[in-house]
Design a protein around this nucleic acid. Structure first.
Lengths: 246, 246
DNA sequence: CGTTTAGTTGACCGTGCTCAAGGGGCGTGG
DNA sequence: CCACGCCCCTTGAGCACGGTCAACTAAACG
């Protein structure tokens, strides 16, 4: 099917992403595309799409921009538990739960679509390939979360940061946001520290190690990885847990 | 509905668990119960139910015994990313993926049910309450995984272990495996270390701290928590992320 | 009985944290 | 236009939490 556009600037990343799991039927993709366009919202950087404790009443799909899922402890310690990249769904069926167990905050200005429960369930009920792709996406999310536990629990700082960067590169690829060996990378060092369970100071030193080893170029919110295999080696990274179709 | 029994020794924990998320219809519970009974398998302790890289072709439901989901790095470092307790489903719809991204190993002898794809999808298609409960279970699993990232990434050793113990207690409660203030706890210190991202030595010392503080009694594979609120305080534990109905 | 597995303890050490200070870029307001 | 404040990044110094290594006990099991 043709890559649909919304307001003249971007291709539809959700469909690309779901297709990376299982091919959607033309009808399914079309119905989804239409639903997405029916309510599009913009939000600035540094705001919460939804906060821990809120009742989730609809689902959201990120069309452009980056967000992070994070949890905090009373004393301010914070853990980013995942990033939300363009094309990713903020939890199919979340409205089945009574409250959010984490917050989703924007790292950049974000454009997203909101879909209400009824409309969303009609979509899923109306197309089998779509329903299955939604399950796949959910299973993949869960797998990513497991990999993060391994990353934070058992990899040392250098491996940990390298692994994170590899994962992001591989997740940007199917939605077409990788341009050659580079991608935009709008994540502050504080965010990266909170995502890896490190302190900002140590994260900074670890990045410098990666730079000194020639594994990454990271400046002005732009990441370039010349030798991705080398970075994968450094991070003990194996993409199979992402469950993208080969 | 009546609590069904299988081979005369145990009540049906899956239905209790799913009911903790959303009430199942009588018909849904009955159909699930029947499907579960149609193939029951036993396995000894210390074996893999399924291993990383395997193709998952059916789903499994743990009826009794404990297992763990774990991932390993080439050099042997291991992270237990979750435990699988009685009543828990080893991933609804996993067969949509082409390979497992982690292994599931038994900690004790385990009795489980196997359900093939066709039969499972008939179940989900046949009862809306069941389909929704399955999504809830999946969303809850994902939430637990996020909490583990926070636990490993941002809590110090004592908090981390306390939090793990609280979580297990709260997860055993809805399936009726909590007897007063005690439960069986068939997890070696090495397993606990791998679940918390600590070394065995340090885990051992942390357990001793918890014991010295009077927060836990743990011996002979039996855990007793006299003052659960105190342990929750020590672990900064708040059960809302489990998403059990209030 | 010997062997293996689980738990415990001591001693030492290193990865990564804390505290502190300073620099650069950028937006805002005087 | 400059001054100021803020955010982000960087660097140094000291230290602690938790890791590693090693040895020993106790129970379980063939």
């Amino acid at each position: 099917m043709s890559l649909a556009r919304f307001d003249g600037t971007q291709t539809q990343p959700v469909i690309r992403r779901l297709n990376a799991f299982r091919p959607l039927s033309g009808a399914g993709a079309l119905a989804l595309d239409k639903a997405i366009r029916s309510r599009i919202v913009r939000m600035g950087a540094g705001q919460d799409l939804i906060s821990e404790g809120d009742r989730p009443d609809r689902i959201r799909i990120i069309l452009s921009g980056w967000a992070s899922r994070y949890k905090t402890l009373e004393d301010g310690r914070r853990q980013i538990v995942n990033f939300v990249l363009p094309g990713e769904i903020c939890d199919a069926y979340v409205y089945l739960l009574t409250q959010m167990d984490h917050s989703i905050g924007t790292l950049t200005p974000v454009v997203y679509s909101e879909i209400e429960r009824e409309q969303f369930e009609e979509l899923a009920a109306g197309d089998r390939t779509l329903a299955e792709a939604l399950w796949c996406e959910q299973l993949s999310n869960c797998a990513v979360q497991r990999e993060w536990a391994l990353n934070i629990g058992r990899r040392v700082a250098l491996e940990r940061v390298a692994h994170l960067l590899c994962e992001i590169v591989e997740r940007l690829r199917p939605v077409g946001l990788l341009e050659g060996k580079s991608c935009v990378f709008p994540v502050t060092q504080m965010d990266m520290a909170d995502a890896t369970g490190l302190s900002v100071v140590h994260l900074n030193r670890t990045l410098q190690e990666l730079r000194a080893a020639g594994l990454i170029v990271l400046r002005e919110r732009m990441l370039t990885v010349d030798d991705l295999d080398a970075l994968k080696n450094a991070g003990l990274f194996n993409p199979s847990y992402l469950h993208y179709a080969p």
